[in-house]
Design a protein around this nucleic acid. Structure first.
Lengths: 249, 249
DNA sequence: TTTAATATTGTAAAAAAACGCAAAATAACA
DNA sequence: TGTTATTTTGCGTTTTTTTACAATATTAAA
């Protein structure tokens, strides 16, 4: 086994177990404790772990990862995600659709939030596994390969059986007259279920989706509680939405 | 063999095995270690691999999941995967457990195979989305973060409702007397369901799991149809298994 | 404090890398 | 075609890295 492999193994184990013991690692990796100590010293020099008597501990960086990430991107979807993340409170049950905006949102949920999130998107679920306290329920079904989400009757029936406080929904198009619309029939159906399963519906919506209309209807405009957008909420484009009782963020 | 060919070979192997050793490559490609080192240097200059003492590692190993990275038995698991992949035929319905051996298997399913695969492992599902014709059904439920698989009652009940031809199962331990065993209660339960849902059970098993016994029983030895291993099937260690009617591959 | 576990330091041996050079293969070109 | 330049490769030598072992010092815990 290569030295770097051992290093990765040690880092993984430290994350998973919260600590490592030199003696354990020596047996596990089949090298002398001496070598392990040298490994720990190197990792410690790189400030990746905290070496202590008998082994090593993780370097505390809970807020680091969050801070690092949230500084990074300044694109539209991130603006939306940053606004939307404030709507999440501990204890809530949340459904997320499979949009990239929701993926960005999943990345920036603060570590101290403690909620249950239902999703049918593989990338979002994977992202959420890095969060320390979110409970993730993956909604199973037939996997749509390119979109990496599950679809089909299983998904529909699973969603209809649950109740959520919030539902974060990416949208295909939105428009005062036709409400929310989707280009894909199956997705439109799933989103209908999501809406009726949730107390509040939050639509995540980049500027370019406003006043678009797609083939299949999801819901009339008044079903939406809050529309989160990358633009100024006071923009004239949202006037009609406001009159229908939709909050703009 | 051309230099470029070697380069492709090295890159392939690094993706598949998670590492390469200069010494191995030298024998495998029939050139001196010197040449291999020069190859590795070039690939490393192009930032396609990470060269380390003794060989090289993939460059993006830090965004791999726990299971994919800290995985010393990858070569053995690959040998198993290569044997097991021949058992897959078009038209079959297959259940896969969440082991890394199954992940390796998922990577090498030939493109012309046309089957339906049920899984409850996020990494396996994600891997399978790259296959052109496999139909993937993801079994939903509560997500176990570090293992990146769904667990719980939802999974159990989903599995009990289906029928499969084959079931590829990673195992915690195996032993003629106690049969298949698992260290985790929930997993043991899920695997029981998998077995009773499948016509044939294929156990994927590295040498070191043989004659191990874990806390929870999954099934007696005669429930296993085929045991796929990285060792020679004629090894004496498998004698007792054969007498119980288990095929060894 | 005493004792057992863990660290440190120095050393030696083994493995691997780097270097320089020359032979061989390949490409370039008159 | 023959000649020359370039690339590729292998080999011996030197240097560096990695590792284990032993002796000694330090730490933590009973």
């Amino acid at each position: 086994m290569l030295k770097e492999e051992r290093h990765y193994h040690i880092l993984d184990k430290i994350i998973l177990d919260g600590k490592v013991l030199s003696a354990d690692l020596s047996i596990e990796l089949n090298v002398s404790e001496d070598t392990i100590r040298r490994d720990l010293n190197e990792l410690s020099d790189k400030e990746l772990i905290k070496k202590v008597h008998g082994g090593a501990l993780p370097i505390d960086s809970n807020n680091l990862s969050y801070g690092e990430r949230s500084n990074f991107n300044l694109e539209e979807k991130n603006i939306i995600a940053k606004k939307a993340v404030n709507l999440i409170k501990s204890g809530q049950v949340i459904i997320m659709s499979g949009s990239t905006t929701n993926l960005q949102l999943a990345k920036i949920i603060p570590a101290d939030i403690n909620a249950t999130i239902y999703t049918y998107s593989l990338p979002i679920a994977l992202q959420l596994t890095e969060h320390p306290s979110i409970e993730i329920i993956f909604i199973g079904g037939k996997l749509h390969k390119s979109a990496q989400v599950t679809v089909g009757l299983d998904v529909v029936s699973s969603i209809s059986e649950l109740r959520a406080d919030l539902c974060f929904m990416g949208i295909g198009g939105i428009n005062v007259l036709n409400g929310m619309t989707e280009p894909d029939w199956e997705v439109s159906h799933i989103k209908k279920c999501m809406i009726s399963a949730s107390d509040k519906v939050i639509a995540l919506c980049t500027q370019n989706k406003v006043n678009e209309t797609k083939r299949y209807t999801v819901a009339p405009i008044n079903k939406i509680d809050t529309l989160v957008t990358d633009k100024d909420p006071n923009d004239l484009i949202f006037k009609d939405f406001k009159e229908k009782g939709v909050k703009i963020l």
